[in-house]
């Protein structure tokens, strides 16, 4: 077998990474969840790196600079919007992560093998992982709005 992308005419990395958007299947929240899980994961990693750099400030520039920075965070609108996005990402990634852990490690909520019969819907889509996903899509905006109220200092 040819390893990696060495083979002639194999789609390049750029084209391959478009696959999640190219395949247009209707009524498929799992795929949307997959895309959101990846995007939020990237946001969380970026935040983590920034967080490490920022918490290094006292060692780099002293405690005065740290205090100044912390004052800024409470008032600067750019920081607040960034925090809002990170809060939404963490909320979705965490909740969807619980669903994925249940399905992948414990094999629950994924249906049972059965003989295919009309209307030919695979057990995966009739299992409770889908209800869990709908629940996540319902709870996520509410929690996110609540987090926004806290971040923008309405309370």
């Amino acid at each position: 077998m040819s390893k990696g992308r060495a083979k002639e005419n194999r789609p390049g990395l750029l084209r391959a990474s478009l696959n999640p958007w190219l395949v247009r299947v209707e009524d498929h929240p799992e795929r949307l969840a997959f895309v959101l899980h990846r995007v939020t994961g990237v946001i969380i990693i970026a935040y983590l790196l920034l967080h490490i750099i920022v918490t290094n400030t006292p060692a780099r520039a002293g405690w005065e600079a740290w205090d100044q920075l912390m004052e800024q965070f409470g008032t600067n609108i750019v920081n607040q919007v960034g925090e809002f996005i990170v809060a939404g990402s963490v909320l979705f990634h965490g909740m969807n992560g619980i669903r994925l852990l249940l399905a992948e490690f414990f094999g629950v909520c994924i249906g049972r093998p059965e003989k295919p019969k009309p209307p030919y819907i695979p057990p995966t889509y009739r299992a409770c992982q889908r209800q869990l996903l709908y629940l996540i899509f319902a709870v996520w905006p509410i929690l996110w709005v609540f987090a926004g109220l806290l971040i923008f200092g309405v309370f």
């Binding site: 999640p20 498929h28 399905a103 992948e104 414990f106 994924i110 295919p116 695979p122 995966t124």
Partner: peptide
């Protein structure tokens, strides 16, 4: 990553998404 599109497009309703998750839990 459990995008589960494999089961959606399967013309024979094989449900590979479930098979892979079961395989993983067995392995775990």
């Amino acid at each position: 990553h459990y995008a589960a599109t494999c089961s959606m497009v399967c013309p024979k309703v094989v449900d590979p998404a479930q098979a892979i998750q079961r395989l993983r839990s067995l392995l775990f």
